[in-house]
Each structure stands twice: as structure tokens, then as C-alpha cells.
């Protein structure tokens, strides 16, 4: 996903001189080519997240399309108020690219996990929130961010994720039907996608599989249409189910009066103290591929 981001930024900068990239001391080996190709439109603003986001807002006020690249806590948590007041309140074209979604950096420890960022990001009106699952979606998310005239948040995992989409979708602006099916709909975003797709392969049955890279604004009408005819939905995400896709879908279902049983898989609302790799954490919390497959079999 990181490579897709870097490639897209280079292409965008070649055709649009408003594109400006800021790193917060991150991007070694990823942003090098951009930095070398466009030294005047790249800045490493160091370990100073508040100033970085404020400065990005100042550049955007002056007509630049600013992309800020850092690990998620440093584009959203440390500088939440700058994102809120300086960027979102002023509706500026600043894209926050956060790496290390979910527990991608495990076992780096809880400080480096981003399991509540969607909850936090979706509190901000006008902030587009995107969580791609593979390099294909990542590119589409970057395109969405580039075309968006307001603020955008793109959360990615790290590098070397496999391509999950075949055929490739053309846009992320509405929910993507990854696999047609019946009875049960499996909804996911971000790095849970790999587990979901592996689980589906294990099954003899065919649930409907839907990717939701664009979580805000959610195209609920389209999703609602896609959920017609299934008797239950399962959300799977590498994020707290509270505040993430699980909450988003639950709110929509209740508000719309749609009668559908909802199961939510993901991280429980607790700090993670386990020292495990990402796959181990997913297993420990019940959303690794075999567990997702078992879950679907049980409720089929």
C-alpha cells in the first residue's frame, strides 16, 4: 500500500504543481523518489505534529494540495485539534495519509496501533475517511483524495499487501461487491480484507462479500440495496468494533429500520497487551480467516 501511495503522489505531482508532500520524519525508502524528483515540493517537518498540520493548512489556504504522510497517531491523534480546527473547520484540501492501520506494526506495542482512528476521524464533519484493503484500492483512494476539494484521511497498513480485487473496481466512492452470494453479507475495510478473502475460500457456501473502503461519507443507499435479501451481516475489521465499521453499520441499520441481524468481528474495546504479530493478534481476538469461516458456518 505504501508503494501505491508513493507512486500515485509522484504521478500527481508530475501533472499538478499544486501537489505538496509533507512527511513527519517518516517514509524512509518510500518517499525518496518523490523527494529527489520534487525537492521544492517535499518537506520533512520532523517530529512536530501540531506545527506540521497547521503549516499544511497554511499551504492549503494558499492553493496547494497538501499530502501529509506519517504513522496514524501522528497525523490524527497527537494533532487532532489542528486537524479539526485548521484543516476540517476551514474545509481545506489536505490529505492525511496514515500508515500502520490496525495492528500492522505488531508487536510494536499499543502506542503504535491504530484501532480507534476511524472512530476519531468520523467525528469530523466533511473529512472523507478511507481504509483501503489492497494496493488496487489504495490507488483509488489516493485518486479520491486528490480529486476531493476538502479534507481526506487515508489509512493504510504498511507494505507488500497482496491484491485482493479481481477484477479491479473502478472507484471507491461506493461499496464494492467483491463476491456475489446469498444469506449472509460479509462487510470489511482495510487490512481485515486478507483474512476475509481467505475465509471465503475455505467455505463451501457463498456469502456476499462487500468491501467498504470509503467509510465517510458512506453511500448507505447503495449498501442498503446490496444488503437486500440477506438475513444477516457480519462486519470484519482490524479496528475496535466500537466506533469502527461495526458501529457505522449498526447506526445505519437502526436508523433505517432495516431488519437484519448484525455480527461484529474485530478488536474488543480494550488495550492490547499481547506481544504477538498481526496475524497472532487477529487470531487471539477471533477474526483470523479460519475463525471468520467458522463464524459464517455457525450462523449460515
Amino acid at each position: 500500500m505504501r508503494a501505491s501511495v508513493a507512486r500515485y503522489l509522484l504521478e500527481a505531482a508530475r501533472v499538478d504543481e499544486r501537489v505538496f508532500l509533507i512527511s513527519g520524519d517518516a517514509g524512509y525508502g518510500v518517499l525518496d523518489e518523490f523527494q529527489q524528483t520534487f525537492p521544492d515540493r517535499f518537506l520533512n517537518l520532523g517530529i512536530a505534529e501540531q506545527n506540521t498540520i497547521g503549516l499544511a493548512a497554511g499551504l492549503a489556504l494558499s492553493g496547494f494540495k497538501v499530502f501529509v504522510y506519517n504513522i496514524i497517531p501522528f497525523v490524527l491523534y497527537r494533532c487532532y485539534e489542528q486537524v479539526r480546527n485548521d484543516v476540517c473547520y476551514q474545509n481545506l484540501p489536505v490529505t492525511l495519509i496514515g500508515t500502520g492501520s490496525g495492528v500492522a506494526y505488531a508487536p510494536a506495542g499499543m502506542t503504535h496501533y491504530a484501532v480507534e482512528d476511524i472512530g476519531l476521524a468520523r467525528t469530523l464533519p466533511g473529512l472523507a475517511v478511507l481504509s483501503p484493503c489492497d494496493p488496487v484500492e489504495t490507488r483509488l483512494c489516493m485518486e479520491y483524495a486528490y480529486r476531493n476539494t476538502g479534507p481526506t484521511y487515508v489509512r493504510i497498513a504498511k507494505g507488500r499487501e497482496p491484491i485482493l480485487h479481481d477484477p479491479a473496481p473502478s472507484s471507491v466512492s461506493e461499496p464494492i461487491l467483491v463476491a456475489p452470494g446469498e444469506h449472509i453479507a460479509v462487510l470489511f475495510h482495510g487490512s481485515a480484507g486478507g483474512e476475509v478473502m481467505a475465509a471465503i475460500k475455505e467455505l463451501s457456501t457463498s456469502p456476499k462479500v462487500i468491501a467498504l473502503p470509503l467509510l465517510q461519507p458512506l453511500n448507505w443507499e447503495k449498501l442498503r440495496e446490496m444488503l437486500q435479501g440477506v438475513h444477516c451481516a457480519i462486519t470484519v475489521e482490524e479496528h475496535y468494533t466500537e466506533g469502527g465499521l461495526g458501529s457505522i453499520v449498526a447506526e445505519r441499520l437502526v436508523a433505517s429500520g432495516m431488519s437484519l441481524r448484525l455480527h461484529r468481528l474485530g478488536l474488543p474495546h480494550a488495550f492490547v497487551h499481547d506481544v504477538r504479530h498481526s496475524a497472532g493478534i487477529r487470531r487471539a481476538y477471533g477474526f483470523a480467516a479460519p475463525q471468520i469461516a467458522d463464524y459464517i458456518r455457525r450462523i449460515w
Partner: peptide, 30 residues
């Protein structure tokens, strides 16, 4: 800033406008 074009930047929480001004100044240099 939506109240008047003379308000160059919204502000209110302390420590924000300073960095925004740095960004504005950098844009002029660029």
C-alpha cells in the same frame, strides 16, 4: 474565516494560527 474574506484564517484555540502563518509564508516563498 467564512464570515469575511478579510479573515485570512479561522482561529480560536491557542497555538494554531502561528503554524498556519508559517504555512502561508512558505507558500509565498514557494
Amino acid at each position: 474565516r467564512t464570515t469575511s474574506r478579510w479573515i485570512e484564517s479561522s482561529a480560536g484555540s491557542l497555538g494554531h494560527g502561528f503554524s498556519i502563518a508559517i504555512g502561508l509564508a512558505l507558500a509565498q516563498k514557494l
